[in-house]
Simulated scan of single mutants.
Amino acid sequence: MLPLHITNETSRLRAVVLGTAVSNGPTPTAEEAYDPKSLEHILAGTYPVEADMVREMEAFHDVFKKYDVQVFRPDIIENYNQIFSRDIGFVIEDTFIKANILPDRERELDAIQYVIDQINPAKVQRPPEEVHIEGGDVMPWNDYIFIGTYKGSDYKDYITARTNMEGVAYIQSLFPHKIVKEFDLVKSKLEARDNALHLDCCFQPVGKDKGIIYKSGFREEADYVFLLNLFGKENLFHITRDEMYHMNSNVFSIAEDVVVSERNFIRLNTWLRSKGFTVEEIPYAEIAKQEGLLRCSTLPLIRD
Protein backbone atom coordinates (compact mmCIF):
# COMPACT_ATOMS: atom_id res chain seq x y z
CA MET A 1 0.00 0.00 0.00
CA LEU A 2 1.10 3.56 -0.70
CA PRO A 3 1.10 5.50 2.60
CA LEU A 4 -0.25 8.77 1.19
CA HIS A 5 0.83 11.90 3.05
CA ILE A 6 0.55 15.48 1.77
CA THR A 7 0.04 18.37 4.18
CA ASN A 8 1.75 21.15 2.25
CA GLU A 9 3.47 22.09 -1.01
CA THR A 10 7.11 21.98 0.03
CA SER A 11 8.00 19.18 2.47
CA ARG A 12 10.50 16.60 1.24
CA LEU A 13 8.97 14.68 -1.67
CA ARG A 14 9.11 10.87 -1.60
CA ALA A 15 6.65 9.72 -4.30
CA VAL A 16 5.00 11.46 -7.27
CA VAL A 17 3.09 10.80 -10.48
CA LEU A 18 4.85 12.59 -13.33
CA GLY A 19 2.85 12.96 -16.55
CA THR A 20 4.14 11.83 -19.93
CA ALA A 21 4.47 13.44 -23.35
CA VAL A 22 4.92 10.12 -25.19
CA SER A 23 2.35 9.58 -27.98
CA ASN A 24 1.02 13.07 -27.34
CA GLY A 25 -0.98 13.10 -30.57
CA PRO A 26 -1.23 15.60 -33.40
CA THR A 27 -1.40 19.37 -32.88
CA PRO A 28 -5.00 20.14 -31.84
CA THR A 29 -7.26 22.24 -34.02
CA ALA A 30 -8.26 25.70 -32.80
CA GLU A 31 -11.68 24.29 -31.87
CA GLU A 32 -10.04 21.66 -29.65
CA ALA A 33 -8.02 24.14 -27.58
CA TYR A 34 -8.79 24.07 -23.85
CA ASP A 35 -7.17 27.40 -23.03
CA PRO A 36 -6.17 30.69 -24.70
CA LYS A 37 -2.43 30.03 -24.59
CA SER A 38 -2.65 26.74 -26.49
CA LEU A 39 -4.95 28.46 -28.97
CA GLU A 40 -2.40 31.24 -29.48
CA HIS A 41 0.34 28.73 -30.37
CA ILE A 42 -1.94 26.58 -32.54
CA LEU A 43 -2.84 29.65 -34.61
CA ALA A 44 0.78 30.86 -34.76
CA GLY A 45 2.13 27.47 -35.85
CA THR A 46 4.37 27.33 -32.77
CA TYR A 47 2.55 24.58 -30.86
CA PRO A 48 5.13 22.27 -29.23
CA VAL A 49 6.20 19.03 -30.89
CA GLU A 50 6.28 15.73 -29.05
CA ALA A 51 10.04 15.10 -29.20
CA ASP A 52 10.78 18.43 -27.50
CA MET A 53 8.20 17.85 -24.79
CA VAL A 54 9.43 14.31 -24.11
CA ARG A 55 12.96 15.70 -23.72
CA GLU A 56 11.76 18.34 -21.25
CA MET A 57 9.84 15.81 -19.16
CA GLU A 58 12.85 13.48 -19.04
CA ALA A 59 14.94 16.36 -17.68
CA PHE A 60 12.33 16.71 -14.91
CA HIS A 61 12.43 12.95 -14.30
CA ASP A 62 16.22 13.11 -13.99
CA VAL A 63 15.92 15.67 -11.18
CA PHE A 64 13.54 13.35 -9.30
CA LYS A 65 16.04 10.49 -9.72
CA LYS A 66 18.81 12.70 -8.38
CA TYR A 67 16.78 13.27 -5.20
CA ASP A 68 15.74 9.63 -4.90
CA VAL A 69 12.02 10.29 -5.40
CA GLN A 70 9.81 7.34 -6.40
CA VAL A 71 8.26 8.27 -9.76
CA PHE A 72 5.14 6.75 -11.32
CA ARG A 73 4.25 7.47 -14.96
CA PRO A 74 0.81 7.05 -16.57
CA ASP A 75 0.13 4.14 -18.89
CA ILE A 76 0.44 5.42 -22.45
CA ILE A 77 -2.81 6.24 -24.26
CA GLU A 78 -2.11 6.45 -27.99
CA ASN A 79 -2.25 9.99 -29.46
CA TYR A 80 -3.40 11.62 -26.24
CA ASN A 81 -2.13 14.48 -24.07
CA GLN A 82 -1.19 13.09 -20.65
CA ILE A 83 1.28 15.72 -19.53
CA PHE A 84 -0.72 17.45 -16.82
CA SER A 85 -1.27 14.84 -14.13
CA ARG A 86 -2.07 17.56 -11.57
CA ASP A 87 -5.47 18.08 -13.20
CA ILE A 88 -6.75 14.54 -12.72
CA GLY A 89 -6.35 14.07 -9.00
CA PHE A 90 -4.68 15.28 -5.83
CA VAL A 91 -3.78 14.15 -2.34
CA ILE A 92 -4.65 15.92 0.90
CA GLU A 93 -3.34 14.26 4.07
CA ASP A 94 -3.86 10.52 3.41
CA THR A 95 -6.76 10.85 0.93
CA PHE A 96 -6.62 10.65 -2.86
CA ILE A 97 -9.33 12.74 -4.50
CA LYS A 98 -10.19 12.07 -8.12
CA ALA A 99 -10.86 15.31 -9.95
CA ASN A 100 -14.07 15.88 -11.86
CA ILE A 101 -12.36 16.99 -15.02
CA LEU A 102 -13.48 17.91 -18.50
CA PRO A 103 -15.35 14.73 -19.57
CA ASP A 104 -13.08 13.86 -22.48
CA ARG A 105 -10.09 13.66 -20.10
CA GLU A 106 -11.55 10.84 -18.02
CA ARG A 107 -9.20 8.35 -19.72
CA GLU A 108 -6.26 10.03 -18.02
CA LEU A 109 -7.50 8.72 -14.67
CA ASP A 110 -7.71 5.21 -16.10
CA ALA A 111 -4.04 5.50 -17.11
CA ILE A 112 -2.97 5.85 -13.44
CA GLN A 113 -5.40 3.24 -12.12
CA TYR A 114 -2.45 0.96 -11.33
CA VAL A 115 -1.27 3.64 -8.86
CA ILE A 116 -4.74 4.14 -7.36
CA ASP A 117 -4.92 0.36 -6.88
CA GLN A 118 -2.01 0.68 -4.43
CA ILE A 119 -4.00 3.06 -2.20
CA ASN A 120 -6.35 1.95 0.57
CA PRO A 121 -9.77 2.02 -1.21
CA ALA A 122 -11.34 3.70 1.83
CA LYS A 123 -8.99 6.62 1.17
CA VAL A 124 -9.99 7.21 -2.47
CA GLN A 125 -12.74 9.78 -2.97
CA ARG A 126 -14.74 10.74 -6.06
CA PRO A 127 -16.74 13.97 -5.75
CA PRO A 128 -20.40 14.04 -6.86
CA GLU A 129 -21.09 15.26 -10.38
CA GLU A 130 -22.00 18.85 -9.53
CA VAL A 131 -18.60 19.32 -7.86
CA HIS A 132 -15.97 20.70 -10.24
CA ILE A 133 -12.43 20.66 -8.90
CA GLU A 134 -8.95 20.26 -10.41
CA GLY A 135 -5.63 19.74 -8.69
CA GLY A 136 -4.11 22.94 -10.03
CA ASP A 137 -6.60 24.87 -7.89
CA VAL A 138 -5.93 22.96 -4.66
CA MET A 139 -3.01 23.74 -2.34
CA PRO A 140 -2.71 22.17 1.10
CA TRP A 141 -0.72 24.54 3.28
CA ASN A 142 -0.42 23.13 6.79
CA ASP A 143 -3.53 24.38 8.68
CA TYR A 144 -4.96 25.78 5.45
CA ILE A 145 -6.25 24.42 2.18
CA PHE A 146 -6.08 27.13 -0.50
CA ILE A 147 -8.49 26.68 -3.42
CA GLY A 148 -8.77 28.70 -6.62
CA THR A 149 -12.30 29.18 -7.97
CA TYR A 150 -14.38 31.48 -10.13
CA LYS A 151 -17.46 33.14 -8.64
CA GLY A 152 -18.76 34.89 -11.75
CA SER A 153 -22.39 34.21 -12.69
CA ASP A 154 -21.08 33.25 -16.15
CA TYR A 155 -19.03 30.34 -14.72
CA LYS A 156 -20.56 27.81 -17.12
CA ASP A 157 -19.49 29.88 -20.13
CA TYR A 158 -15.80 29.52 -19.30
CA ILE A 159 -13.91 26.38 -20.23
CA THR A 160 -11.10 28.04 -18.25
CA ALA A 161 -13.18 28.00 -15.03
CA ARG A 162 -12.26 24.64 -13.57
CA THR A 163 -13.25 24.67 -9.90
CA ASN A 164 -16.63 25.84 -8.63
CA MET A 165 -17.89 26.81 -5.17
CA GLU A 166 -19.42 23.34 -4.80
CA GLY A 167 -15.84 22.09 -5.08
CA VAL A 168 -14.77 24.37 -2.26
CA ALA A 169 -17.65 23.17 -0.05
CA TYR A 170 -16.82 19.54 -0.86
CA ILE A 171 -13.22 19.90 0.33
CA GLN A 172 -14.41 21.65 3.48
CA SER A 173 -16.74 18.71 4.17
CA LEU A 174 -13.90 16.18 3.79
CA PHE A 175 -11.46 18.17 5.95
CA PRO A 176 -13.55 20.00 8.56
CA HIS A 177 -10.49 20.53 10.78
CA LYS A 178 -8.73 22.60 8.07
CA ILE A 179 -9.21 26.28 7.23
CA VAL A 180 -10.42 26.21 3.62
CA LYS A 181 -9.75 29.55 1.92
CA GLU A 182 -10.99 30.10 -1.62
CA PHE A 183 -9.62 32.66 -4.07
CA ASP A 184 -11.69 34.17 -6.87
CA LEU A 185 -9.48 34.08 -9.99
CA VAL A 186 -9.44 36.19 -13.13
CA LYS A 187 -10.49 34.18 -16.21
CA SER A 188 -10.24 34.87 -19.92
CA LYS A 189 -11.16 32.68 -22.85
CA LEU A 190 -9.20 34.84 -25.26
CA GLU A 191 -6.19 36.50 -23.61
CA ALA A 192 -3.73 34.12 -21.93
CA ARG A 193 -2.02 37.04 -20.17
CA ASP A 194 -5.27 37.68 -18.29
CA ASN A 195 -6.24 34.10 -17.55
CA ALA A 196 -5.40 32.41 -14.26
CA LEU A 197 -6.40 28.91 -15.37
CA HIS A 198 -5.69 27.54 -11.88
CA LEU A 199 -4.54 28.99 -8.56
CA ASP A 200 -0.99 27.81 -9.29
CA CYS A 201 -0.96 30.14 -12.31
CA CYS A 202 -0.90 33.16 -10.00
CA PHE A 203 0.35 31.90 -6.62
CA GLN A 204 2.48 29.17 -5.08
CA PRO A 205 4.20 28.79 -1.71
CA VAL A 206 7.90 27.91 -1.60
CA GLY A 207 10.06 27.00 1.37
CA LYS A 208 8.59 27.37 4.85
CA ASP A 209 7.11 30.85 4.62
CA LYS A 210 7.66 32.29 1.15
CA GLY A 211 5.66 32.45 -2.05
CA ILE A 212 5.43 33.58 -5.66
CA ILE A 213 2.42 35.75 -6.45
CA TYR A 214 0.75 37.63 -9.30
CA LYS A 215 -1.48 40.33 -7.83
CA SER A 216 -3.70 40.80 -10.91
CA GLY A 217 -4.61 37.11 -11.01
CA PHE A 218 -7.11 37.71 -8.19
CA ARG A 219 -10.54 39.20 -8.93
CA GLU A 220 -10.81 40.46 -5.35
CA GLU A 221 -8.01 42.54 -3.88
CA ALA A 222 -8.98 41.18 -0.45
CA ASP A 223 -7.82 37.70 -1.54
CA TYR A 224 -4.42 39.08 -2.52
CA VAL A 225 -4.21 41.03 0.76
CA PHE A 226 -5.01 37.84 2.70
CA LEU A 227 -1.89 36.18 1.27
CA LEU A 228 0.14 39.35 1.74
CA ASN A 229 -0.75 39.33 5.45
CA LEU A 230 -0.27 35.59 5.88
CA PHE A 231 3.16 35.40 4.26
CA GLY A 232 4.43 38.96 4.73
CA LYS A 233 5.25 41.23 1.80
CA GLU A 234 9.00 40.69 2.18
CA ASN A 235 8.48 36.93 1.71
CA LEU A 236 6.51 37.19 -1.54
CA PHE A 237 8.09 37.43 -4.98
CA HIS A 238 5.76 39.51 -7.15
CA ILE A 239 5.74 38.46 -10.80
CA THR A 240 4.75 40.62 -13.78
CA ARG A 241 1.92 40.01 -16.23
CA ASP A 242 4.46 38.62 -18.71
CA GLU A 243 6.08 36.39 -16.09
CA MET A 244 2.65 35.07 -15.16
CA TYR A 245 2.04 34.30 -18.85
CA HIS A 246 5.30 32.33 -18.94
CA MET A 247 4.15 30.46 -15.79
CA ASN A 248 6.74 31.72 -13.29
CA SER A 249 4.50 30.76 -10.35
CA ASN A 250 4.27 27.17 -11.59
CA VAL A 251 7.56 25.85 -10.27
CA PHE A 252 7.76 22.69 -8.13
CA SER A 253 9.25 22.07 -4.68
CA ILE A 254 11.11 18.82 -3.99
CA ALA A 255 11.94 20.01 -0.47
CA GLU A 256 11.74 23.15 1.64
CA ASP A 257 15.09 24.24 0.22
CA VAL A 258 14.95 22.69 -3.30
CA VAL A 259 12.87 24.16 -6.13
CA VAL A 260 12.70 22.89 -9.72
CA SER A 261 12.32 25.88 -12.04
CA GLU A 262 12.41 26.73 -15.73
CA ARG A 263 15.89 27.84 -16.81
CA ASN A 264 14.58 31.03 -18.46
CA PHE A 265 13.04 32.36 -15.23
CA ILE A 266 16.14 34.49 -14.60
CA ARG A 267 14.62 37.02 -12.19
CA LEU A 268 12.77 34.42 -10.14
CA ASN A 269 15.67 31.96 -9.98
CA THR A 270 18.02 34.74 -8.86
CA TRP A 271 15.58 35.67 -6.07
CA LEU A 272 15.17 32.05 -4.98
CA ARG A 273 18.94 31.59 -4.73
CA SER A 274 19.26 34.86 -2.79
CA LYS A 275 16.83 33.35 -0.26
CA GLY A 276 18.94 30.21 0.14
CA PHE A 277 17.13 27.82 -2.19
CA THR A 278 18.85 25.26 -4.37
CA VAL A 279 17.33 25.86 -7.81
CA GLU A 280 17.30 22.91 -10.20
CA GLU A 281 16.93 24.60 -13.60
CA ILE A 282 15.51 22.58 -16.49
CA PRO A 283 14.15 23.41 -19.96
CA TYR A 284 10.34 23.46 -19.94
CA ALA A 285 9.46 26.31 -22.29
CA GLU A 286 7.80 24.10 -24.92
CA ILE A 287 5.41 22.51 -22.43
CA ALA A 288 4.65 26.01 -21.10
CA LYS A 289 2.95 26.79 -24.42
CA GLN A 290 -0.01 24.68 -23.25
CA GLU A 291 -0.63 26.93 -20.23
CA GLY A 292 0.90 24.47 -17.79
CA LEU A 293 4.33 23.97 -16.29
CA LEU A 294 6.19 22.05 -13.59
CA ARG A 295 3.56 21.90 -10.82
CA CYS A 296 0.91 21.02 -13.43
CA SER A 297 2.92 17.99 -14.58
CA THR A 298 3.09 16.43 -11.13
CA LEU A 299 0.73 14.67 -8.73
CA PRO A 300 2.56 14.36 -5.38
CA LEU A 301 1.62 11.29 -3.35
CA ILE A 302 3.99 11.29 -0.37
CA ARG A 303 5.89 14.09 1.36
CA ASP A 304 7.59 13.79 4.73
Rank of each mutant, 00 (worst) to 15 (best):
K65D: 13
D62M: 11
D68N: 08
E32S: 03
I83C: 11
V69T: 00
L39I: 01
D75P: 05
R55W: 07
V115Y: 02
E108D: 10
D117C: 14
P128V: 03
D52I: 10
D117W: 14
E50G: 04
T46Y: 04
A59H: 09
I119C: 13
F90Q: 00
Y144I: 01
E134T: 02
Q125P: 01
P128D: 05
Q118M: 13
D62L: 05
I116G: 04
A44M: 10
D94T: 13
D87V: 07
I77H: 04
G89C: 10
D35Y: 06
A33R: 00
I119S: 06
Y80I: 02
I116N: 09
K98A: 14
E129D: 13
F72S: 05
V115W: 01
Q113K: 15
I42K: 03
M57Q: 13
T46Q: 06
R107C: 15
S85V: 12
E108I: 09
W141N: 10
G136D: 05
Y80T: 14
V63G: 02
Q125D: 07
K37Y: 05
Q70V: 15
V131T: 03
E40G: 00
F72D: 09
Q113V: 05
E93P: 12
E129L: 12
V69R: 00
N81R: 11
D87K: 11
S38C: 10
D87L: 04
H41L: 04
F90Y: 14
Y34I: 01
D117V: 15
I119N: 13
G45L: 01
D143W: 05
V138P: 00
F146P: 00
V71F: 02
D87C: 08
R107G: 08
E58F: 07
D35H: 05
E40V: 09
R126K: 15
V91T: 13
I145A: 05
E93A: 11
I42N: 00
R105K: 12
A30W: 08
I88P: 02
M53D: 00
K98M: 14
P128G: 02
V131H: 00
T95R: 07
I116T: 10
K37S: 07
I145C: 03
I88F: 09
V115G: 11
D94R: 05
E134R: 01
